[in-house]
Design a binder for these strands. Structure first.
Lengths: 197, 197
DNA sequence: AGTCGATCCAACCAAGCAGTTGGCTAGAGG
DNA sequence: CCTCTAGCCAACTGCTTGGTTGGATCGACT
């Protein structure tokens, strides 16, 4: 129907994702988003309302992508953790968006928290199944911790550089960290399967 | 000598810490810092140069506090992890400052990265000693991961709420998470002491 | 060709912003 | 009592920012 309204929207979302990932909600500049997208600024307000709502759009789009890309492999939960690590290394924007969001909203509930909950509930269910146990609170604790260690290097690059050694962005260093994660995960999973070993 | 110049500085630093922890570097408002401190805005520029330099002052001050408060207990490294967890729960500002910094500088080196490195080197040394092993890269990997899980709940409150259940800010829920961390840490430490068990 | 509705955009606006300035105040030294 | 210096602050500046608006453009349908 319209010339390319869907395409304009997409271009804006892409530009907004890059801008928000880089500068956060407060630091992002609406003018810059419009410029990057090659689209007039006014379109942002026509399509998305305002800056914060645009951020929400970007975030929910990115979250869908994450859950689609990072799937739970049936054979090895440790590989799942490594996949999360790889994903955050390869595409840092999503984690950065989540972190900006976390800092922005703090302990206040985020918009559409309920909808996101169901997505994570599925992941937890899968995780428990692959472990051959019930999705108890303890399993949730474990899953949450494992996501944490997978994401921690991308979350705190300064600290990573300082503790792990200055060169953390070589293939070799990443492979070493990946191995550590797989190893670490295997052991902690074993201990959950046979509690109080 | 001067009426209370040191006091004025201190008031500014306190106000700045609160403001930066809440809003980050881009989101912080210099006017608001001055207002909170009950001090004229111009003093900030006289004492600290500009907004970003003020942030650095606040951060290094806070880091000194952390290293002073959270010490490595001689008997139990797992308790060290739990202490970190407790500290970040009780005083979320420091972690938030670190996160804002991480997002702001990304993969560029942060100011005075070298100085911070020595402080962490000490921690690593202590950690290795308490484990009765050499401070190898593997031990650094472990320490880094443990700091990650200790901080993860405060880093990602939204995700924590969703995965661990909506009530994460009760004493009970915190105690449960703390227990998980201690347990988790003990096991992973045991596995480092006896590798390839 | 002409009307209509939606899409688009250059120019605009008021508010908010980091950073500055010029003068006021108070206390120490004489 | 005067001077000099350092600390202080109200008011200002110039620029940036999120958000708006009035009209130009264009395709679809009659």
């Amino acid at each position: 129907m319209p010339p390319d309204t869907a395409r304009t929207r997409a271009k804006l979302l892409d530009a907004a994702r890059a801008e928000f990932a880089e500068h956060g909600i407060a630091g992002a500049r609406v003018d810059r988003i419009a410029l990057r997208a090659g689209v007039n600024k006014e379109r942002i307000y026509a399509y998305f309302g305002n800056k914060e709502q645009l951020f929400q759009h970007v975030l929910s789009e990115s979250l869908q992508e994450l859950t689609a890309v990072v799937t739970m492999p049936s054979d090895d939960p440790a590989e799942y953790v490594a996949q999360i690590y790889d994903f955050y290394i390869a595409r840092p924007e999503l984690l950065r968006l989540l972190l900006w969001e976390a800092l922005y909203y703090g302990n206040e509930p985020i918009p559409d928290e309920d909808r996101r909950a169901t997505s994570y509930a599925v992941k937890l269910q899968e995780f428990a199944e692959h472990l051959g146990v019930q999705p108890t609170p303890d399993v949730a604790q474990l899953l949450f911790s494992l996501i944490g260690i997978a994401a921690w290097q991308s979350t705190m690059p300064q600290m990573a550089r300082i503790i792990l050694g200055t060169e953390t962005d070589t293939d070799q260093a990443r492979a070493r960290r990946r191995e550590h994660l797989v190893d670490f995960t295997r052991r902690s999973i074993a201990s959950v399967k046979q509690p109080q070993a």
